[in-house]
Nucleic acid binder design. Structure first.
Lengths: 337, 337
DNA sequence: TTGTAAGCGTTATCAC
DNA sequence: GTGATAACGCTTACAA
């Protein structure tokens, strides 16, 4: 209780009149412990009375478990990753862990992340991203790590979302509205989600008898500006698409702006549907039709898999939680139908 | 280098043929160390050869410093707090620290946060928020903590932004455009930033000879929905304001939507300016005029103050970095002027 | 049913 | 200039 003086196991032991090891075993509910009920009560009382909390560093040193997970995202300000962090945090808390977070592109060297592992600061690493390659050092380290929302052919430890499925939902929504000339505003080159959404788009197009015209696919990074540029370019092509499936909701904000800028009305002249919902998506003008993905669940599954699987075993999971097409104002039947 | 076997000080010592303590002192560049250059070289070589990294837990146990800072925000998905986290992270990294982040309203009990301190997991606590009260336990703990972006009369350890100044910039912008009937879409009751922005608004109004009409102030929480509700209410009042200063940019998104819904054109019939810029603010339709605040700098200053000040000393700083009024499309001279 | 003791990997204070 | 050695606070065989 005194500020500056920490209560240690020895203090509690003295207070309860037993040995330190007894306190430890009571607190960790050691199954092979046969203790007299009255002693246990006394121990618990002393713990409470002194406000004892085990020192994390000492415990970590002894047990080699920090109960800490490292989570790296490209950018905290990206709402997509904010959701993943939220989910991961909840799952971590459920198993008594905390999250050390970091942002920035996961560079090829990966040294900063591996260092956290090497220092024993974290028990495992969740790498959410991102366009970059998975460093070989990671694969060779033999330490617990997992890729989130991106997969790598040569590093099969990842959990991802059903990006193909999301693309299919979006395309089918547009097809059902009567669209045939459907463009794709794809994600950046090298992005794993981008290529899965693009292939989902192509597959869905073919399934509906619409050949995906390569002239109707254009790349943009996952930013509003990227979406703006790409959509501006797309609108210059003839004949113009009547609808566009945008791989990312932030790009879609820029895409809507570009349409507005070019005098193309959404949705009457152009329908727009994007992957990922946003808390304020329904308040945009026009309110955006989106495919809501289970991002928090992705975060959750990440920590679950990370903490429960053998670090050497391959992990390749697609989060099963349901996606949902949220119909709002940015999609409508084509005018010229 | 071997996976599974960690390199320890003893290994390096054996490899270099010196004592562990020498390695330690070299690595920590102990000033009172007089070592033969060739020995130092040998030590450094061994460290590099074995890939030695000091174990964080052991070091923390010994030094009582975890080089870890706890940062709590109400919600990772709130772009305002995402910026704060980004800034804090950078500042922490500069001093060799990592950030343990957590989200959720800081409850009155605050026990989970204090526990991190008590466990020795973090060296200090940065509490960013938020509507809630500062728990007395915090003040009494004698531990390093700091409030970010909120102040409390009875707990003078905080760093905040110049909310009054931001309000003044916004109001002056509107006044300069010719507006007189300026409403305030304020933040939620109990929010510290909300009340500072509100009083900044009132002061600026008076300074410009416009009495702030209480009928032109309405509260909303810092969400798009809150802004939508409040703006809808505001637009029902007569005579209608020609401009509104919105305390938060997320609310402003909802506010714009409400105007659109009511058939009120922005900016020709109603100007809107909000506190906090957003990466995609210029892509919204209409692009939002905002007051950009130094949010990352707030995060930076938070960790700086936390790590450099005596935990018992009062801290009351307003971040000095410049704010900027970003003129875009949502403000214009009043029509009826 | 409880106590003893040996570490975990550092750092810091000495002594040589 | 460098080496022993004693903590730091906890866990866990094993002994009593």
């Amino acid at each position: 209780m005194k500020p500056g003086k920490r209560v240690t196991l020895a203090d509690v032991a003295a207070h309860a009149g037993v040995d330190r090891s007894v306190i430890s075993r009571v607190m960790n509910s050691d199954p092979g412990l046969n203790i007299r009920p009255e002693t246990r009560v006394r121990v618990l009382a002393s713990v409470k009375a002194l406000g004892y909390r085990p020192n994390a560093a000492a415990r970590t040193l002894r047990t080699r478990r920090s109960r800490t997970i490292g989570l790296f995202v490209p950018d905290h300000a990206d709402p997509v990753y904010a959701e993943i962090v939220t989910g991961a945090e909840a799952a971590a808390a459920e198993r008594g862990c905390v999250l050390v977070t970091g942002s920035g592109r996961v560079a090829d060297s990966a040294q900063p992340y591996l260092d956290l592992l090497a220092d024993g600061r974290v028990d495992g690493l969740l790498l959410a991203g991102g366009v970059t390659a998975t460093p070989a050092a990671l694969r060779e380290s033999g330490m617990p790590w997992l890729l989130l929302n991106r997969s790598m052919a040569d590093a099969t430890r990842h959990v991802v979302l059903d990006d193909e499925g999301a693309a299919a939902m979006a395309v089918e929504h547009l097809v059902n509205l009567g669209h045939r000339r459907i463009a794709h505003l794809a994600g950046p080159d090298g992005s794993d989600t981008a290529s899965r959404r693009a292939s989902g788009y192509r597959a869905a197009m073919r399934r509906h008898g619409a050949t995906p015209d390569p002239g109707l696919a254009v790349r943009a990074d996952y930013t509003a500006d990227g979406g703006f540029q790409a959509m501006t370019e797309l609108l210059g092509r003839t004949p113009r698409p009547t609808a566009v499936f945008v791989a990312n909701v932030t790009s879609a904000i820029g895409a809507v702006r570009a349409a507005y800028r070019c005098g193309v009305r959404v949705p009457s002249e152009l329908s727009i549907v994007a992957v990922h919902d946003l808390p304020f998506a329904e308040y945009l003008v026009p309110a955006l039709t989106t495919v809501r993905m289970p991002l928090q669940e992705l975060g959750r599954r990440g920590v679950e898999k990370l903490t429960t699987t053998d670090p050497d075993a391959p992990v390749s999971e697609t989060v099963g939680a349901p996606m949902e097409l949220v119909r709002r104002e940015s999609t409508a039947p084509p005018r010229e139908a």
